[in-house]
Amino acid sequence: MSTTTITQAQEFGFHPGDIIQEWLWDDDVDEGLRRKIEDLTGEDLVDEDYDSAVDGAIIWWRDGDDEDALADTIMDASELVDEGAPFWIITPKPGREGSTNAATLQSAAKTAGMNAATPLTVSEDWNGVRLRAFGKGAERADRMERAERDDMDLR
């Protein structure tokens, strides 16, 4: 595997040994990008029927699919992804068939309780948008603060 291939796949935040779940694969996806991820992780991508914990997820999304369906897919996919693990929506670039509106992605992500980052070019025809759950850091800080207060009360 070339250094370029490793670097491009690492930009997703995936690592050797990671199990990555792939959602909404179709014959239009970028097979080269899929191979780069598989080469880096050393594992085949698993499909949406996989039912064990995963180290990351990618969702191939195209315009014309229902925004509510995207929010539902995000929620379904996030159930198996480890907290803080890389979670990506991959869409055709603007001007390509199936390109989607950024507002649609933002709205679906928000409905699913996630923030959508700025799109990044991930291949010649596809952009990737990383999602992160709302408040993960805040929730963790609140838990730690409560634990500290509880610990002090026990003294």
Rank of each mutant, 00 (worst) to 15 (best):
T5Q: 14
T5C: 08
I6S: 00
T7W: 03
A9D: 15
Q10S: 12
E11Y: 10
F12Q: 10
F14A: 12
D18C: 15
W23C: 06
L24S: 07
L24Y: 10
W25P: 07
D27A: 08
L33R: 08
R34Q: 14
R34H: 08
E38P: 07
T41F: 10
T41W: 14
L45D: 02
V46D: 04
E48M: 12
E48F: 05
D55C: 07
D55E: 15
G56H: 11
A57L: 06
D65R: 03
D66A: 11
D68I: 04
A71D: 03
D76F: 04
E79P: 07
V81A: 12
G84P: 09
A85N: 10
A85Y: 11
F87M: 13
T91G: 08
T100H: 09
A102G: 05
A102V: 11
A102M: 07
S107F: 10
A112P: 12
L120C: 00
L120V: 05
V122P: 13
S123P: 00
E124K: 11
W126P: 06
N127A: 07
V129P: 05
R130P: 05
L131K: 03
L131V: 04
A133F: 01
K136L: 12
K136W: 04
E139M: 09
R140L: 02
A141I: 03
R146L: 08
A147N: 02
